[in-house]
Computed example of a mutant assay.
Amino acid sequence: MSEEIIAGRGAEPAGPPTPLPELPEEAARSRASVLRSRAESYIALSRHDAAVADLTEAIALEPDNARAWRMRGESHRLIARYEAALSDFDEALRLEPDSAYALGSRGQAYASLGRYREALEDFEHALTLSPESLWVLEARADALADLGRMDEALDEHAKIIAVNGEIAYSWLARGDLYQRMHLYAEAIDDYTKALDLDPAYVRGWSRRGEAYRMIDRYEEALADLNKAIELDPDHDRALGSRGAVLSELGDNEAALRDLDRAIQLDPGYIWAFRVRGEILQELERHEEAISDFTRALELEFGDA
C-alpha cells in the first residue's frame, strides 16, 4: 500500500463484526489476510469506518500483525480519531519498532493534536530509517511551521524539491508555506513553477489566484481562478476566492453566486460565510449578514 494516503472523510456505518465460530489457525490467518486486503481498498475509497470494521476483525484473528494495527491507526487518523490512532500506532510500533510508515503516521496524529514536539521526534526517527520519504519530510515541515520555525520548514521543502522537483506538488507545497508566511511574490513564483510542470493543475491555478488576491492584483487573480473553475467547476476554494475577487472588482451579485455555490459544496467553509456576510452587510442585507456571521462563529468557535 502506498505510504502517501490521501486524507478523506468518507463514513460508512459499520457495526461490530458478526461473531464467527472459532477458526483453525491457518483459516484464521487466511481470513485476516483477505480482511486486510479489503480494508486497503476501503481506505483507498475513503470508506474508513468500513476499513476499521474489517481491521478490527483481522486484529482479533491475528493480533500480532503489525500491518493491521498500522492500517487501522491510519483509518482512525484520517477521520480525526487521533487518540485511537495513537493507540494503534503504538501497538504497531511495539510489534515493528523500525516502521518508518507507522512512525510518520503517528507523528501526523501527534501534530493534529498539537503535540508538535512528539511529532517531530517521530518524524526524525522515521527519516533516519527512510531519509527520502517525501511525505514525512512534508509532515515535518508542517510541524516546524506550526512551531514558528519557518526557516527550518523551508529547508525541509528545499530537500523535497531537490529530490522531487519534477513533480508539480513539490513546488505547490512550498508555495503554500510561503503564502502562510505572507511572502506572496515567492509563493507566486513557486505556483508558477508548479503550473509550468502541470498546466492542468487545478490547485496550482487556485492557489496562485489566491496569492494574487492577497496583493490586490485582482485581474490576475480573476484570470487564474477562472482557469481553476474551468478545469473543475466544483472547486469550492476557487469559487470562494473568486467570489472575494469579484466583490473587490465591484460585482457583488456575481460574487454572491460564487460564494453560494462554494458553501453549497462545503457547508463547513468558514471563510466563505465570513466573506458572504461582509458582502451582504455592504448591500445592507443585515439579517442575512447576521446569519452568515453567526454560522461562521458556530463553525469556528462552537457558539451555540
Rank of each mutant, 00 (worst) to 15 (best):
S2M: 15
L249C: 06
L183F: 11
S170N: 11
E121I: 08
S33R: 15
A11D: 11
A126G: 02
L45D: 14
D190W: 04
S206F: 05
R149T: 01
P131F: 06
A100E: 06
R31N: 09
H48R: 05
L154R: 01
T294E: 12
R70K: 13
P97R: 12
G165K: 08
H125Q: 14
A84E: 15
R261I: 09
L86K: 08
R242L: 06
P13G: 11
L144E: 02
A92W: 02
V163C: 06
E248S: 11
M181G: 02
G15D: 15
N226C: 09
R217W: 01
A228F: 05
D155W: 06
F89N: 10
A39H: 02
I229A: 09
Y82N: 15
A187G: 03
I215Y: 04
L113P: 00
S2V: 14
D236F: 11
R29L: 11
A289V: 05
T192S: 15
F293G: 06
E91L: 13
L154Q: 05
E248Q: 12
S33W: 08
L280E: 06
K193T: 09
L137N: 01
G15N: 12
L280R: 12
A44E: 11
Y116E: 03
E253F: 07
A168Q: 09
F273H: 13
L134A: 13
D234A: 10
G204Y: 06
A223N: 08
L45Y: 06
R81D: 14
A53I: 00
R285C: 09
T56R: 07
N65Q: 08
G148R: 03
I229V: 13
E4C: 13
A27E: 14
L127C: 03
W205D: 08
E220F: 01
F273T: 07
D258A: 04
I279D: 10
D176M: 12
M181Q: 12
A119D: 00
L23F: 03
A66V: 01
P267N: 09
E124S: 11
D234R: 11
L222N: 04
L154W: 00
D216G: 01
S133L: 08
A109T: 01
D64I: 04
R29Y: 06
A126M: 07
R29V: 02
R203Q: 08
D151E: 12
E210N: 13
G243T: 07
L249G: 07
Y212T: 02
T294G: 07
D232I: 03
S41K: 15
E121C: 08
A254I: 07
S46K: 07
D224M: 02
S37G: 14
E288I: 03
G240F: 11
L120C: 00
H235R: 06
T56G: 13
A119V: 00
I79R: 15
A39W: 02
D260P: 04
L246Y: 09
E166M: 09
G114C: 00
L129A: 02
D190R: 05
S46L: 05
A66E: 05
M150A: 02
D292R: 06
